[in-house]
Design a binder for these strands. Sequence first.
DNA 1: CTACAAACGGAGAATATCTCTCCTCTTCGC
DNA 2: GCGAAGAGGAGAGATATTCTCCGTTTGTAG
Lengths: 229, 229
Amino acid sequence: MADDVAGAVRTREAKAVRRADQARNRERIVAAAREVFAVRGTGAPMDLITRTAGVGSATLYRHFPDRDTLVHGVCLDVADRISERGRAALDEEADPFEALRRFAVGAVEEGIGALCLMLPDHLWVDDAELHAARRRVDAVAEELVRRAQRAGRMRRDVGVGDVMVALSQLARPLPEGVGADIERLTERHVRLFLAGLELPGGDGLPDGGLGRPGAELPGRPATLEDLRR
Amino acid sequence: MADDVAGAVRTREAKAVRRADQARNRERIVAAAREVFAVRGTGAPMDLITRTAGVGSATLYRHFPDRDTLVHGVCLDVADRISERGRAALDEEADPFEALRRFAVGAVEEGIGALCLMLPDHLWVDDAELHAARRRVDAVAEELVRRAQRAGRMRRDVGVGDVMVALSQLARPLPEGVGADIERLTERHVRLFLAGLELPGGDGLPDGGLGRPGAELPGRPATLEDLRR
DNA sequence: CTACAAACGGAGAATATCTCTCCTCTTCGC
DNA sequence: GCGAAGAGGAGAGATATTCTCCGTTTGTAG
């Protein structure tokens, strides 16, 4: 019995045996791939990833037998981090628009700009794990937007799809070798975008500052459904 | 004398001789290259451009002997269209923030998202024509922002560099095969971003709606100098 | 501390991709 | 219609990328 338990543990944690460097390398590879894919697309040369990660090519292929597997792993990683951030924002921020702002800034830090570049290219289709991860992101983003709008703190003519796409675009890394350290600008731009969404709290102005010339938006609010084509 | 004049004209317009298809093909190539470069970067395969343009590869090489020449031509084209739009906005819009808004929407239509991807990659260094074109864009953008801020219609903690980078990012095409027709969303997002910049006209509220929690921006306003590294 | 096994790195052959010229056929302008 | 300039597209040569193989290193257990 004790043998069975030990055996089961050993089996279940088989991956964890040589963990010290193996697991660390896996992390490094995923992190490097996130950067590289974000800048050069998911077709980027594999050995650019290995060099960024500081590992040999064999190490990459040992962890991810082909490109799709790697893209899959990176998407999953990013999506999980993002929904995690959103969940924390929902739980810990009192003001609903503050929660949305915290989520937005966090999602940018976690690489939402990279994620949205990867979705179209490859899979994300018919993979249960990825579908689940996406549903978690979608659910938390929808909840954040709904609360902000319910509280009268966010424009009604903007949808959660608008927010996700705009965040992704603002957070996209520029191609290698661009001057400005975008990183620092990105947060400014995200906050400005959010300022364009925000309605002042408390005072109940009927149009919340809308109605000024030029403030109307063309088209309809984008839903998440719109983003899935 | 008449012969001299005719000769001079013929020389000066030598390029225009076989104009009907040659000039049209040049336009097509530049337009195709703008699309392709925007999506895949300036390193995109040439024959992707030729196929997009609907011409043979020899035709492309006849107009642009190498990749740099093509990038040069596309940058020039885009930059000129953008400064043209800005000039028109300055001349024709009474309200300074409306002028900025018109410029922003126009710049997006003309492919500012593509332009900013091309600058870093290649040349744009030590080429008189490109420098001049860039100076024209810079000058008109600076003027638009300055007027809007002088009139108290735009936040002071935002610089012209912020505006240009954010516009470029929002306007970047997504990699091929993305679901949502971004085109339609982009204008919404640009207008939302501008709404985040705008201060209400006329009433002279000292903080123009700033001072709300979360409305402050990290860092300093970005100048155009910041973008040149 | 030693021994073992698992993991690592990187060179390089096989392969895929891209560039750019060459030659023939089409189209324009007169 | 005629002549010349331009267009198109196949493909040889050059370049870049993948992914395996094997000698070396490194972490862990006894």
